[in-house]
Design a protein around this nucleic acid. Structure first.
Lengths: 246, 246
DNA sequence: TATGTTCTCTTGATAGGACATACTAGGTGG
DNA sequence: CCACCTAGTATGTCCTATCAAGAGAACATA
């Protein structure tokens, strides 16, 4: 190979060069070719090894620094930080998270309705008074064990939905196929004591601890597409993240 | 002014140009000069207005997109998303968070010891067997109301610490003044039921809900400097964040 | 009128150069 | 032997330049 990282670049690929480099270095770290703590060659040499310009190489390394895999020190060099398991905390549904981890979640749709939005939902989704929304409650199980109870409100002027579709496809997949491009989401994570209703569905002891998450997702046109209130069994779920100091 | 954003650039400043632009646009958004939803001029014009090159302008806008203030669409343009209150979720202590929000927290140091690290701490901080660490428990109050109970373990080979210093200064301030440059932190957020001990200190009902956070911070030399287990009153604290889809 | 093509505007990607600045290490002088 | 200074090296910043790709509007054609 043309370098000492096991990274190869395909210039005919539609994948941007800098992203190919990101994937390559990630793979090298995960496979152990690059050990945690080891120093990389300097940016100019790396660029030369892959026949890239330094800005392209730097852009790739920028992303890796941002995601916490590499650290840079001016005048010294760049080194690998850690190959610990990270949950990257991207904009995706729990369904995506779990399927990416190899588990196979199932979803029961406990209720589905097409209703007039209440005050709070109108405000959260920035809808005019009198608007109608889809409202539904789902129970997510992994390996037969209940994990999450999810209540969502979704705009009804984007894609038509019904209970069967929702049970089969997953909310975000439906919305994406309806032409929605998500851009960002605001989340709030907290805790609460399970109500009897929640404890029953999640098959936990009454008054056990739950992780709560409220999320509102915005698409590329600025619409607030969806808002949800999810609760997770605290003994089975937590949010992991890596914070990077700029 | 030389542009329509109220942004001015000082080329003699040590602050990088792209960062001056970031601060300028942030200020324009917060002050209302740039309204949520409004479209900015295209990158080339903006760069010309400020007498900057397009890559510099782009780098500034990259940061703003990353932080969720702007959204870009190829072929269309760039627009302001929202000026909602955001908790930027940076690498900082709760003390910083709260002082930045104008409140004045107080800290009681409930216990302070210099002990041999247990198995779990040795593993978390990547220390050799037999190492000693500082261990302490603090209670954080805001406006006299208990908010957080924090238990921390800190390497003792960086900066000497004692109970008085800790009560006066805040953990991260002490470590920073000891020459520690934090680079990243791994966090895990979950929930639990308060023990009687916790409920008593936090002045909540027994068996109420708490938000838990475990954090391990790494400095620029790759050392795991500090690990902590914090619990917050769920009725007073939650974690807010904005996720940006790349 | 409706549909398909093209043109233009905007962001996205890549290249290559130049200079600035921080850190390290080694050499030099006291 | 120690402290200071300096050269080397690596990242940080900024520039000019060019092509690609997506989106939307305008226009031509059936």
């Amino acid at each position: 190979m043309a370098n000492n990282l096991g990274v190869s670049i395909d210039r005919s690929s539609p994948v941007p060069l800098y992203h190919q480099v990101v994937q390559g270095i990630e793979a090298a770290i995960n496979s152990g070719i690059l050990e945690p703590g080891s120093r990389l060659d300097n940016e100019i040499d790396l660029a030369a090894q892959l026949s890239l310009s330094r800005p392209t190489m730097r852009k790739a390394m920028d992303e890796l620094v941002r995601s916490g895999l590499l650290v840079r020190k001016r005048g010294v060099g760049t080194q690998v930080v850690s190959s610990q398991v990270r949950r990257p905390l991207e904009l995706s549904s729990l369904y995506d998270d779990l399927t990416n981890n190899g588990k196979k979640p199932t979803t029961d749709v406990l209720g589905f309705s097409h209703i007039e939005a209440d005050e709070r939902t109108l405000a959260t989704l920035a809808l005019p008074a009198g608007s109608t929304v889809y409202h539904f409650t789902r129970l997510r199980k992994v390996a037969g064990k209940p994990l999450a109870l999810m209540e969502n409100w979704v705009r009804d002027d984007i894609v038509p939905m019904d209970q069967d579709l929702l049970a089969a496809e997953g909310l975000y997949a439906i919305l994406r196929s309806g032409g929605v491009n998500f851009r960002l989401a605001n989340q709030r994570i907290g805790a609460m004591i399970a109500t009897d209703y929640q404890a029953g569905l999640l098959e936990t002891l009454p008054a056990s601890a739950l992780v709560t998450m409220e999320r509102t997702a915005v698409d590329d046109t600025g619409r607030r597409v969806e808002t949800g209130h999810h609760v997770y069994r605290a003994d089975s779920y937590s949010f992991e993240m890596t914070l990077v100091q700029r």
